[in-house]
Amino acid sequence: MFELLGIPPQALFGQVLLGLINGSFYAMLSLGLAVIFGLLNIINFTHGAQYMMGAFVAWMALNYLGLNYWAALVVSPLVVGATGIVIERFLLKRIAHLDHLYGLLLTFGLALIIQGLFRNSYGSSGLPYQIPPQLAGGHNLGFMFLPNYRGWVVIASLVVCLATWFMIEKTKLGAYLRAATENPTLTQAFGINVPLLVTLTYGFGVALAALAGVLAAPIYSVNPNMGSDLIIVVFAVVVIGGMGSILGSIITGFSLGLVEGLTKVFYPEASATVIFIIMVLVLLVKPAGLFGRTA
């Protein structure tokens, strides 16, 4: 049997698939960041906390209201998205005309506050959340055992990513959004409510993070730090893909998940740093990122 760098091909296929699954989380989170950055010019450091809130709201919905996983998939993004809208209206809007740095500091501070609040109420070690019974178990693909739930995560994430891309790049609403980004004053002059668009966009980006949080709840530990562990990597993904590029963040998300997955096989110790090494290399060659437009 032939081996590739000492790894049998069966095992390699399995790892590639796992990489794609993890990539789907990166893709969904970086997509939300890209949408928010592209239209609001805000570097949303609260994104990780909002992803965490998504998972916690799913847990609360189950334990306080008896709503199952499928209901949480709808409810949680709506609830967390609504909190995002409140944040945009009352905080972000006021600093929209200032330098990037203010938005970054504000959202970073908010993230710390939100994490602290959840830690005070629920502790740091996390809460149990089971895989929904419809998706329990898995299939033996011959080269690996694929849990049904992971398969669902990849499909759900791909659908959401492509739908978002389609909406922004191919529909009339998307055209308004892009116009508002290019020239808010002129767009408003055409009778389009730009501030409302901006608020809804932020809410949508946040809802995407919350949706990723619900998807993550059954497989990752649901704890107040779950977002901060992931967010740094996701920011690297966004930077590599090119700030604000929708398609860039999707493709980069999936492909970096893949690279990270393979690193876990060949040199596990480096798997936490490989993404940052790639980031450095990409920035040296293409400072605007792989899919970014040079300003």
Binding site: Q15, I21, P268
Partner: peptide, 13 residues
């Protein structure tokens, strides 16, 4: 495995 980690599926495999 890198510490702290989130996804251990690759290692478990």
């Amino acid at each position: 495995t890198p510490f702290p980690g989130t996804d251990f599926s690759s290692f478990l495999l």
